[in-house]
């Protein structure tokens, strides 16, 4: 009984060990060669993208430094006036992302920040600049989106672009008591974090403590607000663009490095397999020759 039951197992084990040990992962030479080629091509692409991002980097960073000064000057007015956002009322989040991906977690960190803000303020509306965040937030919070722009982030953002975005936002029918520009703050070429700039409404500007010192006529307030909104959007766009380029450079650098490692590994595997094949053939030939000589 026992011996008969055990036999099939023994037979199967013998069959497995009898088969010649497959050289790594059953891969044939041609398969490895194909993989190697495609990895090489990918490495070429990522390297080129890295170089492109590096050259754009300087320009983007310069532009961002300028935009930062610009935005800070704009904010100085409200700092001095001690303007505070309204306690209640409708809020609009302007999400400053861009159209292109392949730049690490830039867009998803922005989406995450916006989602966290929507948790505390579920009634808020969204205006999304750029395709990437539109796709992410449009899936999770489609009801909150009122407007989206695409074509952002092809080049260094210009003030003219920020202006026309601000213009479109101001011509929405709804009135917003608070407007916040959510963007990625550029800390260093390797670090960024999602932050927000307030763009105040007329009421909150008017209600601020020291605003009377500026002696601005009431009828000019809407203009001031529009201009401030354009400034904030410009700041957010410029900073987001610099972050994106920096992140893309890093991401592509890592990708090229990984590709290089993979190429090395596959090259070794390829050489070994080739050697094994040659050895196998030699053994066959020699055995054949020895057999026929006898």
């Amino acid at each position: 009984m026992f011996s008969r039951a055990a036999r099939p197992v023994v037979q199967r084990a013998a069959a497995v060990s009898a088969r010649p040990a497959p050289s790594n992962n059953y891969a044939t030479l041609r398969e490895i060669e194909g993989r190697l080629k495609s990895i090489r091509n990918i490495e070429k692409i990522t390297k080129t993208m890295k170089i492109v991002a590096s050259t754009k980097m300087n320009q983007a960073q310069r532009n961002m430094v300028q935009a930062r000064v610009y935005g800070a000057t704009n904010n100085k007015v409200y700092e001095e006036a001690e303007t505070k956002p309204e306690e209640k009322g409708k809020t609009l989040f302007i999400v400053s992302s861009s159209d292109k991906g392949l730049c690490g977690g830039v867009h998803s960190s922005l989406s995450k920040a916006v989602r966290a803000k929507l948790e505390t303020n579920p009634e808020a509306d969204l205006c999304i600049l750029g395709e990437k965040c539109k796709a992410q937030l449009g899936r999770s919070h489609p009801k909150n989106v009122v407007m989206s722009f695409s074509g952002v982030g092809k080049d260094v953002p210009s003030f003219a672009m920020a202006q026309s975005i601000a213009h479109e936002i101001m011509s929405l029918e709804k009135q917003y008591e608070n407007v916040e520009v959510v963007y990625n703050h550029f800390n260093s070429p390797v670090a960024y974090e999602a932050s927000a700039i307030d763009a105040f409404s007329e009421e909150s500007i008017k209600a601020s403590a020291n605003f009377a010192a500026f002696e601005v006529d009431d009828e000019q307030l809407p203009d001031l607000r529009e201009f401030a909104l354009a400034n904030s959007i410009y700041w957010g766009l410029a900073e987001g663009y610099a972050c994106e380029i920096a992140a893309r450079r890093n991401a592509m650098d890592n990708a090229s490095k990984n590709a290089g490692e993979m190429i090395n590994k596959f090259q070794i595997l390829f050489n070994r397999t080739r050697q094994a094949v040659i050895t196998g053939e030699l053994v066959e030939i020699i055995t054949g020759a020895a057999a026929s000589a006898e």
Partner: peptide
């Protein structure tokens, strides 16, 4: 060149994106 840009914008209603329109220089 600084004044040029190509934007497209679309309004959303009830969670659906409406037709997108090009937005050129003002």
């Amino acid at each position: 060149r600084r004044g040029q840009f190509e934007l497209k914008f679309a309004k959303w209603e009830n969670g659906k994106q409406q037709e997108s329109k090009p937005l050129s220089t003002l």
